[in-house]
């Protein structure tokens, strides 16, 4: 059992969720309420990581984040390290890869709020920010929580893109999914089995807790 890999996976999932939470709320809300030209294209772009093979996304990330690309050069200039094959690079890849999981359920959550309830909030004198805090978030939060749980669980399980962008550096980029792959390659079936079981347990627990929570919310509002 590679505890360092598990810790790294949890750390990666944590940072992905922390960074994507505001994105999920603001961008999900934006897509739910605004109509604009090219909205279908934007929504398609958000969904793209869901259908693309991780290798394709990983390839483009390698190209754009690498030392010869502007972003990679800028990062190197500011932080003195390279972005690819590092934990920070993994976080960037993970954020992009999780966009559909973070945005879609939140968007659905905001869309489920009847328009006249939002109008009532503004007629009650609430500014848009206050309306978001007092009315929209309390009503949309099951969607936002679902988004975050999916993001968390999905990051734990991500393999292809991590391998492409991060490789398998112990303590830096070797997540639990990569560690399992390494163990299988080394015919260490028992270690692979233990880690697989741990991953199943964590993912199942997270998702089950969310479902239980959202069922309670459903009863409260029903």
């Amino acid at each position: 059992m590679d505890w360092t890999a598990l810790e790294l996976s949890l750390k990666l999932a944590f940072w992905t969720v922390v960074i994507l939470l505001p994105v999920s709320i603001l961008f999900g809300r934006f897509l739910a309420f605004r109509r604009f030209r090219g909205k279908a294209l934007v929504e398609a772009l958000v969904m793209l990581p869901l259908v693309l093979p991780p290798t394709v996304l990983g390839f483009y990330l390698l190209v754009t984040l690498g030392r010869n690309a502007p972003i990679g050069q800028w990062w190197h200039g500011v932080f003195g390290s390279q972005l690819v094959f590092s934990f920070q690079g993994l976080v960037v890849a993970s954020i992009l890869f999780n966009l559909p999981f973070a945005v879609q359920p939140a968007q659905r959550g905001f869309q489920a709020i009847p328009p006249e309830v939002r109008e009532a909030a503004s007629c009650c004198g609430m500014s848009p920010l206050r309306s978001l805090w007092k009315v929209e978030l309390p009503l949309a939060w099951p969607g936002v929580v679902t988004a975050m749980v999916l993001t968390f669980a999905h990051t734990l399980g991500e393999f292809g893109i991590v391998l492409m962008v991060g490789g398998s550096i112990p303590g830096e980029t070797r997540t639990i999914a990569i560690a399992i792959y390494d163990r299988v390659q080394a015919f260490d079936t028992s270690a692979a089995a233990t880690m697989s079981a741990v991953l199943v347990a964590i993912s199942l627990f997270t998702i089950a807790v969310t479902f239980a929570l959202s069922a309670r919310v459903g009863r409260r509002l029903g």
């Binding site: 006249e116 309830v117 109008e119 009532a120 909030a121 009315v135 009503l139 409260r220 509002l221």
Partner: peptide, 9 residues
Amino acid sequence: FQNYALFPH
């Protein structure tokens, strides 16, 4: 509002 639009929560 016609359907009241109360805040359900």
